[in-house]
């Protein structure tokens, strides 16, 4: 594990939060702003260390809350708890499979807003809720399941482009060397 993976994950979290706040085209069209952080947490839980997951939940969650009317810190715990649940079972998950990535993205993107809303309600806040919330969660879930494999692909490309290149094995074997001349 090198510095590239955690740095790129944290950078991606900041950019994802900024994108959600600065480009509301999808919200205008679909009626809901998709959340990119759950998909990123799925990637971090399957490919990274627990320290990176902690940093991701704090950087992403606090960044999201700072740009929002959310109480500061409300997005941190749901994101980390869901990431940890995947992390605990990551040896059993076929993490290279597109289907597995997509299903995990779907589940985390569905549960994350629900946990956030439950926390908000338990703190006595009054978020804007209604039947439309179900539609918003459905959009967040579907987009989350699409975005998660894209995160995996993006980081694979990034590591290939910026990470250390693997040394290729030489085909030279001394025992099969043809020795010329007298022995």
């Amino acid at each position: 594990m090198n510095w590239l993976s955690p740095t790129s994950i944290l950078l991606a979290a900041i950019l994802a939060v900024y994108w959600q706040a600065a480009f509301p085209m999808l919200r205008s069209v679909l009626g809901a702003q998709p959340d990119l952080l759950p998909g990123l947490m799925v990637y971090a839980a399957l490919r990274s260390r627990i320290q990176t997951m902690v940093l991701l939940s704090f950087v992403g969650g606090l960044g999201q809350d700072a740009l929002s009317a959310n109480p500061l810190g409300i997005s941190v715990l749901p994101l980390f708890a869901l990431g940890l649940a995947i992390y605990a079972k990551r040896d059993l998950i076929v993490k290279d499979q597109l289907f597995a990535q997509s299903v995990l993205g779907l589940a985390v993107s569905f549960l994350n807003p629900i946990l956030c809303l439950l926390l908000l309600l338990s703190l006595g806040k009054h978020p804007l809720l209604g039947w439309g919330t179900l539609w918003q969660i459905a959009i967040m879930t579907i987009v989350g399941s699409i975005v998660t494999p894209i995160w995996f692909e993006l980081f694979r490309w990034l590591e290939g482009a910026l990470g250390p290149s693997h040394t290729t094995e030489s085909s030279f074997r001394p025992d099969r060397e043809i020795r010329r001349g007298r022995a």
């Binding site: 939060v17 959600q20 706040a21 919200r27 959340d35 740009l67 929002s68 009317a69 959310n70 978020p127």
Partner: peptide
């Protein structure tokens, strides 16, 4: 208007 609320349950702008 610089930014909008990233959460779906509030209506704020920056």
């Amino acid at each position: 208007v610089a930014l909008r609320d990233p959460a779906n349950w509030w209506r704020t702008i920056q």
